[in-house]
C-alpha cells in the first residue's frame, strides 16, 4: 500500500479535481492519496466526485482555510 501526496495549494477551482483524477488513474487499489488544498469549493467538489466514483474519502481542516483530503482507491 503506497501513499501519494498532491500539492494543490493556491490552485483555482477545477485543478484539484483534475489532478486527483489523473493521479487516481495511476494508483493501485488500496493506495492512499493525500490532497492538500486551500480552495473552499474543493471540500465539496472533490469529495462529492470521489464518493460518486466509489472510493473512500474524508477530509480534515489542518489550519484556517486549508484542508487535507484523504482518498483510498477502491476500484
Amino acid at each position: 500500500m503506497a501513499e501519494f501526496r498532491l500539492d494543490c495549494l493556491y490552485e483555482a477551482c477545477p485543478i484539484p479535481l483534475l489532478k486527483a483524477h489523473k493521479k487516481l488513474q495511476q494508483m493501485k487499489i488500496g493506495d492512499l492519496l493525500i490532497l492538500e488544498t486551500d480552495h473552499n469549493c474543493s471540500i465539496v467538489n472533490v469529495v462529492d466526485w470521489v464518493k460518486k466514483q466509489g472510493h473512500h474519502v474524508d477530509y480534515i481542516e489542518i489550519t484556517e482555510g486549508q484542508w487535507e483530503i484523504f482518498i483510498e482507491k477502491q476500484k
Binding site: 493556491y10 486551500d38 481542516e61 489550519t63 484556517e64 482555510g65
Partner: peptide, 17 residues
Amino acid sequence: VLLASEFKWKKIKSKKQ
C-alpha cells in the same frame, strides 16, 4: 468565511495562472 474560521490569503501560484 470568517464565521467559519476558514479565511486565508491565497496567493498567486505562477505567472501562467
